[in-house]
Design a protein around this nucleic acid. Sequence first.
DNA 1: GGTTGACCTTCCCATGATGGGAAGGCGCAC
DNA 2: GTGCGCCTTCCCATCATGGGAAGGTCAACC
Lengths: 165, 165
Amino acid sequence: MGIVMNIGQAADASGVSAKMIRHYESIGLVPQADRRDSGYRDYDPEDVHRLSFVRRARDLGFPLERIRVLLGLWGDPTRSSAEVKALALTHIEELEEKARHLQEMADVLRGLADACDGDGRPHCPIIEGLEAGSVPASSPSGERPISRSSSTSLPSRRSPSPGRR
Amino acid sequence: MGIVMNIGQAADASGVSAKMIRHYESIGLVPQADRRDSGYRDYDPEDVHRLSFVRRARDLGFPLERIRVLLGLWGDPTRSSAEVKALALTHIEELEEKARHLQEMADVLRGLADACDGDGRPHCPIIEGLEAGSVPASSPSGERPISRSSSTSLPSRRSPSPGRR
DNA sequence: GGTTGACCTTCCCATGATGGGAAGGCGCAC
DNA sequence: GTGCGCCTTCCCATCATGGGAAGGTCAACC
């Protein structure tokens, strides 16, 4: 009969919403909570501790599947810190890759915006850049590796003789 | 009888997948394509030009709803470049905010990883950081503004008398 | 004891942008 | 006239999260 909480209290104590706690349970990220006779879930401090762990990992951007692994390492007394570190370094790489990608997009757009007068006239290098620009875009994780030329010109595929139909 | 393409050719020429072209049409981002008697969609160079515009905007990270606005400005001869610029600057802010958020997560994690030996022993500051760390996390767009104390200790809500049940 | 309001339960749906895949029809080249 | 590659629509999946409905529970207060 230690400290026992319902899901709302566990949510407040862990920083994970009740909705998410149920979800994590449903996908097996955290073990199924005990139930009272009424059907209410019960949480003890250990459960809350685990939920807090998950929340902090989420705050650091770890995807749930990686958190699943982290939880396994957390509870494994025979783990090697090398495993944890490798996981963390992989994640850092991904975070920085995404950050770089976003910043690069911002930089390209900034270049266009700097060239734009921003007055009442319609002429606008930003629109023109979108119309005809090449937008290099380094492939950060899921990009289109297709190197087209300038579009709106020569169709590439399937047109040996123009004027079908 | 100008140059007319089916969706696959338009996809190749614009860099937008056929799947996405259909989707953009279904949500009204681009006008409904003409149809042949067979039901096949037909695209002319102007359509492809518009799709290329959308693709470049996507490459710069614009969400579809913003692209909808951009397309409107694009086709509006009475637009002011100020409108376009404002939209672009707003977007740049968002991109940089997200980039900062990701980089900050990476930095925090790097700090933990640097303190980790990464050897065969279980001791690991990374795990410890997740267990008890505070993970400040500046709120970039959707954060939890709840400032809890240290978790796993005092439940905050609803427990005037401990030991219910 | 009864009522009330805050809580809990499950279930379904939505987000944003994209892809996968099935089932069936079309087009053209050999 | 057959076959292959394209097209059509429709449904489902991703990833993490939230909203909301319909109905049951708990505890406090009168």
